[in-house]
Each structure stands twice: as C-alpha cells, then as structure tokens.
C-alpha cells in the first residue's frame, strides 16, 4: 500500500508517542490497518475532581491531515463545560484557523499543521483541570461549574468512580 502524506505523518506520530509517551497519556490507532482512527486514554489530572479517572476517547483524522485538525470524542461519560453531551470535545486547538464560530479564540491557540496528537491530548488534559466557560459546549455543566462548584465536583467524582467500576 502506498502511504499518503497523512498516513506517513500519523505513523511518525504513533512511533513517537509509543516510544516516548508523555505522562498520563496513551494513544494509538485502534486498528493498525487504519491509521486515521485512533484510540486515546487520558488520566485525570491530579488535584482535580477528575483525579484517578481514566478517560477513553476516539480521535478521527481527516484525509488532509495535518492541514486540517482531527476531531476528538470521549467514549465515556464526561461532565465538563467544554465537552458536548455526545462526548465531542470543543477546544480551540481542534479548530482550524478559518472556522471560529464564536469569535473568541485567538488564532494562535488554534490548529496548525505543526500541532500534533500529543499536543492535543496535553491541551485536553489541561482543559479538564481548567474549564473554559466562555463558550461552553455543555451549558448545564458550565452553569453548574460556575454557580455550584461543589455539586459539579461531586458529580464528576461520581462519574470517575462509576467509570472505574467502583
């Protein structure tokens, strides 16, 4: 099989992530015959209600990657202002510079071909720790986070425990 530009780059990234993974992050193609669909695991950052949890997500890459960003979708229950109820992650690094539905993101924070899976996952990890409630994907979660922080944290902890099967 002749490999496309995107496949080659994804393979490079896979090797890099496998040989030198950042702490708390794991990622790779779901099926090694298809490099355009990845599974990722993110550990909940310490000192946050997500601590102790492990959150699986699916990354789906476009054919013209890395010119265009992938999409990321959690496959577990994740109560967070920047994650849609469907699990889809809404974060500036996953948005191409051209499309900014809310006009609040700086171009410098958004997707560029020099970004990588590793940088996305690190950004998502810090998003878990520090939600951005300026343009919430999950309005209910954002309201709860802003107004009833205790309740929010308790709900997140419950989800984490349930996710671990406790």
């Amino acid at each position: 099989m002749s490999a496309s530009v995107a496949a080659k780059r994804l393979f490079q990234e896979y090797r890099l992530l496998t040989n030198d993974p950042p702490e708390g992050i794991m990622a790779g193609p779901v099926n090694e015959d298809d490099l355009f669909s990845w599974e990722a695991l993110i550990q909940g950052p310490e000192g946050t209600p997500f601590e102790g949890g492990v959150f699986p997500a699916i990354l789906t890459f476009p054919k013209d990657y890395p010119l265009a960003p992938p999409t990321m979708k959690f496959t577990c229950d994740l109560w967070h202002p920047n994650v849609y109820p469907s699990g889809l992650v809404c974060i500036s690094i996953l948005h191409a510079p051209g499309d900014d539905p809310n006009h609040y993101e700086h171009a410098s924070e958004r997707w560029s071909p020099i970004q990588s899976v590793e940088k996305i996952l690190i950004s998502v990890m810090s998003m878990l720790a520090e939600p951005n409630d300026e343009s919430p994907a999950n309005v209910e979660a954002a309201k709860m986070w802003r107004e009833r922080r205790k309740e929010y944290e308790e709900l997140v902890r419950q989800n984490v425990r349930r996710g671990l099967g406790l």
Binding site: V54, P85, G163
Partner: peptide, 12 residues
C-alpha cells in the same frame, strides 16, 4: 450530537 452516553467500565 445526541445518542445515549455509555458508562465507561474500563481500567487502564
């Protein structure tokens, strides 16, 4: 952007 959200039952 809908559909039921499954509960994760996975361990690392």
């Amino acid at each position: 952007v809908d559909g039921p959200v499954h509960t994760s039952s996975l361990s690392p």
